[in-house]
Design a protein around this nucleic acid. Structure first.
Lengths: 243, 243
DNA sequence: CGAGCCTTTGATTATGGTCAAGCGCTGTGG
DNA sequence: CCACAGCGCTTGACCATAATCAAAGGCTCG
């Protein structure tokens, strides 16, 4: 793997969102020492592959990825979409192998944090340790919301909730929550939500006809956020999880 | 909350499965100092309730619980079933509030581990810290399998997979993987798997007629483990998660 | 012993899946 | 710069799985 010169977390525009979040200056400095950058991953290429050895956590710098679990029979499940600032690989700590593959949805760059160093820092830096636990805990809670979404909601509610969650994630990144690009295909959205491509397409058409959204290819505009919330029925805590 | 005299993890029959797993003797001793026991929770009563302050992690000593997420509109989602040795509350670290309620399915006793002490130990004891991270990571991976189960599998495959996972959990506890009691109702199983009570009942009847299982009320006997695996179609890593 | 809940079973329905066909981007090479 | 190939998306017709509605039997516990 080609490494590029390290660029400081301190100066990263994602530092409020990513691993450095909430770290005091001296702890941040120590994190900076261990973060490595990788050369960009091309669209469609894997950052890591299911079953391979877990060596590092990854933070998305730019771009987007999907995490995919492939069953014995070849069935694929997209377990999440990772945007800039999201962390990947936490699910691999237990077994030492990645339980999913991470595939770039567009040209994507990431920071790599070797896990041995993460554990070391977690032992020495209380704020960092608490942050790591908090991030994992948050993902557990998000997975529970996602479970409720898949278990209890209609296709229409799932898609609306997904779009709201994406919108909120863009807002948290200081981007427009009303207009953004969908880096994933209709089939990807469908798979993630336990539906089919055709159903997603029909629902998009429906939302467009209702004047709730505007969508040309993958450029989404949310015209009526309240209409979308209304369609979603109930708000789940960020159900478009990252892992 | 009434506390009972502390009983040592060292002598607990669940120590191979529960928090003490893999801890060296000196670390185990320190864990023992902070574990508290609670008086039993009656069937149907909560160990903790959604929205309430997170104060401690809980380890199930005997009995079983379900964790339930309730939406604004009153819809309930059972996110998991906790058996003896399972840990509850990890999903609450992030927000400081429990995102789910934990309800006893039968008379249940638990050990409470105040979270401040957990963090303290995680800072001082490397093995314990790594174990905590590992447990959370494992739950993340299990949630991904569960996502695939709900997203890609038929009702029949979901139930078969659920029964296999339960069976494996009993095996891991040194109990019979072929004969065990179901502490949850048909409606609970249905809800957890994103199905209805009626569907679960029909599927049980079908599996019984096929000679794959024997089921009287809640006493389950797996007559043909291979038949069940065959029905499940694909094996997911312990998809009947605990949280 | 009785009330209430849990479970089973049947009849019917609806949501979303499957199959199929055609259109439209996008990007590549001539 | 344009043509074409290939993938992504849309739309339609039909179907199947599991939900809903309904009713009755069987545990369990007070």
């Amino acid at each position: 793997m080609t490494l590029r010169p390290t660029q400081a977390c301190q100066h990263c525009t994602l530092r409020q969102l990513c691993l450095p979040m909430g770290l005091p200056q001296d702890e941040l400095w120590q994190l900076d020492q261990i973060v490595q950058q990788r050369r960009p991953i091309a669209k469609g290429a894997p950052l890591f592959t299911m079953g391979t050895k877990f060596e590092a956590l990854y933070a998305v710098r730019t771009g987007a990825l999907k995490t995919v679990l492939i069953s014995d029979d070849g069935t694929e499940q997209i377990t999440g979409f990772a945007l800039a600032g999201d962390l990947l690989g936490l699910d691999a700590i237990h077994s030492g192998k990645h339980p999913v593959s991470a595939i770039a949805l567009e040209s994507t760059s990431v920071c790599a944090v070797p896990y041995g160093h993460v554990d070391d820092l977690a032992g020495r830096l209380p704020t960092f340790r608490q942050h790591m636990m908090s991030v994992m805990s948050q993902e557990l809670a998000q997975d529970e919301s996602l479970h409720a979404l898949l278990g209890q909601r209609t296709a229409e509610q799932r898609l609306a909730t997904f779009l709201i969650a994406l919108s909120e994630r863009h807002r948290a990144r200081g981007l427009s929550p009303e207009r953004f690009y969908l880096p994933m295909s209709r089939a990807d959205i469908a798979n993630h939500l336990g539906l089919t491509q055709e159903t997603i397409s029909r629902l998009f058409t429906q939302l467009r006809n209702q004047g709730v959204i505007n969508l040309h290819t993958r450029d989404l505009e949310i015209l009526q956020p309240d209409g979308l919330r209304n369609t979603a029925g109930v708000t789940f805590t960020s159900a478009a999880s990252s892992a």
